[in-house]
Amino acid sequence: MGDKPRAELFGALHTLYQSRDYSDLVIFARDSSRHPVHRAILCPRSHFFHIAVKERRWRDGTEGHLTLAEDDPEVVRLLVEYFYLLDYDPIVPPPKDAESASIHGSDKSDALSVRTGSTDAVQYGHVYGTSAVSAFGGPAHREPRFSATFNGHDRRDSSLTVHAIPGHDFSPFGDRPPIGRGKSNRSLGNAAPEPSPLATAEPNLVLHAKMYAAGDRYGVAGLKSLALDKFKIQLTRHWDMAEFAEAIHVVYNTTPSSDKDMREAVADTIGWHGSKLLDKAEVECAVMEINGLAYELLKRSRRAEPEFMG
């Protein structure tokens, strides 16, 4: 019964996302797709948006619109979706012709809402993860201030998608313990995780990497951990795809080298499937070109020896 008020809030957010009533800021993607949003929804969770509109200091705030020119339009759309639905659900990219056909953004967004509307019930349960809420006795995302978690990489509070799975012992990577940063006991002898049952058919590795980058760029910690989890889940099943090589480049080029989580996910995967992956030309090219990656892999190859680096 405690779920009802919560469901009411989430439902309201959902409605707000669809209707965009009362919106007071418009986000444009570089393809001019238009996303009317609410400052009250975005600013408390993103340092970037907070500053952009605060105190009418910048043009963005005074004019009430800004363009996120750095991101793919799809990333922008999912970013906005995340702000309202606490999750993003990449749609299957439409066929080439369809994409060119629906270049006019507003139409597309209408079409989208119709589509999401049709899967409402399923998505609702999936996105808000009521089971997670009850399991933790409160909203799964408990990050009250963006500033507090601005730099944080809190893995525990990762994605609802993960929490939504019954049974806490379950790991998206099969029976391996979750991968931690730093001195976790990753040994070479460890077997690669089984493909996660949550992984979708579409790899979407590049997309998740870009979402992660967007989370980093705009200071949305929750989005970062959500994207990271999705990325890892997809990797368990799609590491073999050609898209992986591209995702590697995205990971290494869109986040600072101090941001380790995605890089480790990449290096771990190459480590587990090295024999197969390193033979691939595009992976080889990536390893050759990206020093950081080569170094990560070298570290893993020396794992059997005593830890040397602090």
């Binding site: 500053i51 200091r57 910048w58 043009r59 005074t62 800004l66 363009t67 750095e70 760029r217 080029n253």
Partner: peptide, 21 residues
């Protein structure tokens, strides 16, 4: 004279410089 400046643009530029080390 900052009122004419786009924060997004400036941030993006600074961001890119930093990202590129």
């Amino acid at each position: 004279n900052a009122s004419a400046l786009s924060f997004e643009e400036l941030y993006r530029n600074a961001y890119k410089i930093v990202l590129k080390k």
